[in-house]
Amino acid sequence: MDHVLPITLELNGVRLEPLAPHHAEGLRAAAGDGELWTLRVTSVPEPDEVDGYIFKAIEMRPTRLAFAVIDIASGAVIGSTSYHDIVPAVDRLEIGYTWYAKSRQRSHVNTSCKLLLMTHAFETLGAALVGLRTDNFNHASQAAIERLGAKKDGVLRHHAQRRDGTVRDTVMYSIAAGEWPEIKAHLRYKLEQHKAD
C-alpha cells in the first residue's frame, strides 16, 4: 500500500472531498444540527473550534486524510470522516473521526461513505486490513460498526482522553481484505433496500 493521497470520491448523492479551510462554515452548520459537540462520546468540534479542527486534520497528513462529507444535491457539508492511523508498511489504515449532522444520521449517508472509503482502501490502495474504533460507551457507534460486518478485535482499556477529561476504553474492530467481497455485497444490498423504502 502506498501513501494515501488526497482524493475525491462520490456515490449515491454523497461526495467525500479532502477537508480544507473553505469547509469551515459548512462544518459549523453540520455540527450545529443537533449540537453534536455536547455528546460526551464523540469528537465533534464546537463551532469556535472548527478552524483548529480542520488545521489539525491537515497537519496530521500523511497518517490521517480527513474528508468533508458533502450532499451533492445541495452542496451542503453534512459531516466529516477520515482515514487515519495509516501505516503503509503493513497495508493497514483505519476509518474514523466520523460524524454527521443529526438530520443525516440513520440515513443512507454512513453506509454510502463506508462503501466509498472501504472500496478505495481495499481495491485501489491495496489495504490488507481496515480498522474502526469507538468509545466503549458509544453504543450507537458500536452497533453501526457491527452492522457493517466488522469483527470485534477487543478493547483497549484506559486508552484515550474524552473531552470532559475522563479516560475512555476504546473498542477496536476490523475488516480484512478477504472479508471485503462479502461485506461489499452486504453494503450494496443495504443501500438498495434503503432506496426501496
Rank of each mutant, 00 (worst) to 15 (best):
A76V: 07
V77G: 02
V77F: 05
V77R: 03
G79A: 05
G79I: 00
G79T: 03
S80V: 03
S80H: 02
T81S: 13
T81F: 09
S82C: 05
S82Q: 01
Y83A: 03
H84D: 02
H84E: 04
D85P: 00
D85Q: 04
D85R: 05
I86A: 00
I86V: 06
A89N: 11
A89C: 10
A89D: 14
V90F: 09
V90I: 15
V90S: 13
V90T: 11
D91F: 15
D91R: 15
D91H: 15
R92C: 11
R92S: 10
R92I: 12
L93I: 04
L93G: 04
L93C: 05
L93F: 07
E94L: 02
E94I: 00
E94W: 01
E94A: 06
I95F: 02
Y97W: 08
Y97C: 01
Y97L: 02
T98E: 06
T98Y: 05
W99E: 00
Y100W: 11
Y100I: 01
Y100Q: 02
Y100G: 01
A101T: 05
A101S: 06
A101L: 04
K102M: 11
S103H: 13
R104K: 12
R104E: 14
R104I: 02
R104D: 05
R106P: 07
R106E: 11
R106S: 13
S107G: 07
S107Q: 08
V109M: 10
V109P: 05
V109T: 09
V109H: 03
N110H: 06
N110L: 12
N110C: 09
T111Q: 09
S112Q: 06
S112T: 12
C113S: 00
C113L: 04
C113M: 09
C113K: 01
C113H: 00
K114L: 06
L115I: 13
L115Q: 14
L115H: 13
L115G: 13
L115S: 11
L116Y: 06
L117N: 02
T119H: 05
T119C: 09
H120M: 10
H120K: 07
H120E: 09
A121G: 15
F122P: 08
E123I: 13
E123K: 07
T124N: 15
L125F: 11
L125S: 10
L125V: 15
